[in-house]
Design a protein around this nucleic acid. Sequence first.
DNA 1: CTGTTAGCGCTTTCAG
DNA 2: CTGAAAGCGCTAACAG
Lengths: 350, 350
Amino acid sequence: MRLVSRVAAAGEYHRSMDTPARIKLADVAAAAGVSVPTVSKVVNGRYGVSAATTEAVQRAIDELGYAGNLSAAALRAGKTQVLGVLVAEFDPFAAELLKGADKAARGSGYELLAHSGGFTHGWERRSLARLGGTLIDGAVIVTPTVLDGDMVVPVVAVDPHFGPNRLPTIDVDNFDGTLQATHHLIELGHRRIGFLGGRSELDSAQSREGGFRHAHAQAGLEVDPTLVVEARYQAELAATITESWLDSANPPTAIVGANDVSAIAAMNVAQNRGLSVPADLSVVGFDDVPDAALATPPLTTVREPLHDMGAAAMQMLLDRIDGNSTDTHVRLPIELVLRDSTAPPRPGRA
Amino acid sequence: MRLVSRVAAAGEYHRSMDTPARIKLADVAAAAGVSVPTVSKVVNGRYGVSAATTEAVQRAIDELGYAGNLSAAALRAGKTQVLGVLVAEFDPFAAELLKGADKAARGSGYELLAHSGGFTHGWERRSLARLGGTLIDGAVIVTPTVLDGDMVVPVVAVDPHFGPNRLPTIDVDNFDGTLQATHHLIELGHRRIGFLGGRSELDSAQSREGGFRHAHAQAGLEVDPTLVVEARYQAELAATITESWLDSANPPTAIVGANDVSAIAAMNVAQNRGLSVPADLSVVGFDDVPDAALATPPLTTVREPLHDMGAAAMQMLLDRIDGNSTDTHVRLPIELVLRDSTAPPRPGRA
DNA sequence: CTGTTAGCGCTTTCAG
DNA sequence: CTGAAAGCGCTAACAG
């Protein structure tokens, strides 16, 4: 007997040295002299507890600093008043969306949890399965690549890489983006324009190429097939393709990148060859990531309203959860941001 | 017997209509023809499972797309291989830190969960209590104001508003920041410089005021007591104070804001009075939030390396968890970013 | 109004 | 090597 209690005391002493005891419902119940379920009712504001008891429990809660255990509550109740924003990684794109989503969620009665699922294939599905249904009551998923069928919880996708037909979606008019960008170059006088395409299996990439082609058609221009190559949104590929174009007998005077990364890579290649951007080569990007404005020269590009997209996605999720949802697709406007990487072609080279 | 199975079948059918069945360990076990604990062992890579069984289980997992339930696992095991970044809200400051933390966590074997606790007093403690110990194995807390004593899980604070003595901390040299900013103004020729102070109860605010004063001392200059006023990091207060300074008989020719918000408010006040910034009034801020660069004119300010701070905090947390931790305080360098809101004072007014 | 009972999905002994 | 039993902290029924 004596021994046991001394051991216990030692254990507690040790614990208080590093990790203090996590106070739980049972501790509060003991302190208030009531049962565990009663405390639970008070915590969750359920009816059927006397004012006196409520007050006693509340005092115990405050004194002990009880804050609950999300995992346990989630597991049991199946809902949590927490919404998730699921991303592959916290990159600039995702961070911006997150800010918008946070703002939209404010005051909704839901807390926000953002989760980065890593780069592995199928992160969308895995994150959703691991968190959905217990930890989070719904999710905004950012740029999912694969995600089919019914979900365990309400889900809204932002800029999914597979048309807006499968999931409630927030996206931008990718077609219109490259349309404007290409139109801008044509208006400056460019006639040979290269297109560094995205990942052709993705919906967004196809739309962006479509806009590029349509701008040419509108202007009565032919698209040289050798000037439309798939750079798969990657810097290295974009650089290689740009090299080969500039090596050719009849190089383009301007390039449209399907994303900023490709466009910036193209600028670098040109500049490393002693060419001037935009005097010798004009370049336009897509996305307007922070790097675009910081590039030398600052990159003309198509801006997506990231902040608004995050807010719109969260709002749509909230609507779906409340049940008063009708929208299934919101498309936000893009905007061509003119900076210093575009100019008329050199005389005689157009 | 017969009845029971028909009821079950009906239940499953109905469920597949809206929310598909959440597959659990038991489902996998049934499919693989083994017990639940055996599947658990396979999932967690424990020893003591035959190769044949492992393979069968693995196949069932893949087929069913099992992904586990974080809440349940957390509740039982007490650890999750997930680390948290706790913030009051996902503002630009927090988003930037998050990116850095994400990068540092990559490849560590931990996933990242970011949580915005809202604006309520004591969000730091509540978020930590709700998530700590079950959902997350450790946390980086951004700009906590109150947080004492021992924590339930390893914790690292970023830019806490109370000296670096209580928690492992990542911060910047606030003193050096305003020192450099003020020195810059003095070098330009300014002699009457106003200081829009922060919240004086906070450690960071005191250091920033200290740097301001020290720069004067170094230059052999007196600080006019009427030119050091507490704006509490708030735009409205900063505006009011600036108004009164500009109304005075001997107004300052330059202003140092304890944060960018104050500085930008001061610029607006001056410009609304028809004064030119920087010709009539030079202004310097602190933080380098995105608004600073976008202000008119772009604000000269003290930049904190947010990205690096997030990464350093995560690294410190990882070290603490691994036990091979020695550092308890890392201080990152600030940098004075010269933009267009500072210039020499008008001749004869210095 | 309060407490007892049961169980969410998972992991951990510990028998077999 | 495998399964049966117990329980993490909490909440939803129900009984008292």
